[in-house]
Design a protein around this nucleic acid. Structure first.
Length: 215
DNA sequence: AGATGCTAATCC
DNA sequence: GGATTAGCATCT
């Protein structure tokens, strides 16, 4: 029986009796028979002796034991040296080329997995960054609110001061006494000092600045 | 029975 | 070595 007829038969078996086919194919390998020739792509026309033939690509899944050994080997080393390839091939009863292909595909899967892991890690980082951003924005809003309240309090105190002055007959004694009023802004870790009606001097540990506002 | 996922095998 | 194809198994 020619090998193409054997292949055709196996093709039929594989199609209608997949389990029997798997068994037969496995037996072929374990008996050390000639390896199946590498199949060409489906519908690929092969020119030989002026004839064209369409050869179906067959494929057999590796057995659990074969995959286990390959996986262990891959765990040791992702690259495959010639010697190890031959060694593995004989241990597995596979064509060295099959072993090479398996490693190539395994490296591709490993790389994809790494990329997915990295993507997932970056995604998590991104999400926590977004949450932190919102937290900080909320904090800024709260602090702005507090600042606004403090400014209103200062305005109120200034107005009180003004009305005190206007009701007093000798303003010089108070406004030009060079004794500026102090405000405790402990809430902000700062100290405030009223310079005049338009200026408020604020100091903290890091910086010093003057806030101006319209009366 | 069609959709989908995995992967051996092929092509470039 | 990466991209792609296609066989096979499993799921829906």
């Amino acid at each position: 029986m020619s090998s193409s007829k054997v292949d055709d038969q196996m093709e039929l078996i594989s199609h209608f009796y997949p389990h029997i086919y798997a068994q037969l194919a496995q037996e072929q390998v374990s008996l050390g028979e000639k390896m199946e020739p590498r199949r060409r792509r489906k519908n690929k026309v092969e020119g030989r002796n002026n004839t064209s033939e369409v050869v179906m690509r067959k494929r057999k899944l590796l057995s659990e034991e074969q995959v286990n050994l390959l996986e262990r080997s891959f765990g040791d080393e992702h690259k495959l040296e010639m010697e190890r390839k031959a060694q593995l091939a004989s241990e597995l009863g596979l064509d060295p080329h099959q072993v090479a292909v398996w490693f190539q595909n395994r490296r591709a899967r490993w790389k994809n997995k790494k990329i997915e892991e990295e993507y997932s890690k970056l995604n998590t980082q991104h999400e926590t960054t977004i949450i932190e951003k919102y937290r900080l924005e909320t904090e800024v809003l709260k602090m702005k609110e507090q600042l606004c309240e403090a400014e209103m309090e200062i305005q109120k105190l200034l107005l009180e001061r003004k009305s005190d002055i206007s009701s007093n007959n000798s303003p010089i004694s108070s406004i030009f006494s060079m004794e500026q009023q102090h405000f405790d802004l402990g809430e902000f870790g700062m100290e405030g000092k009223l310079m005049d009606d338009n200026m408020f001097f604020v100091a903290d540990n890091q910086s010093t600045y003057i806030t101006l506002w319209d009366n």
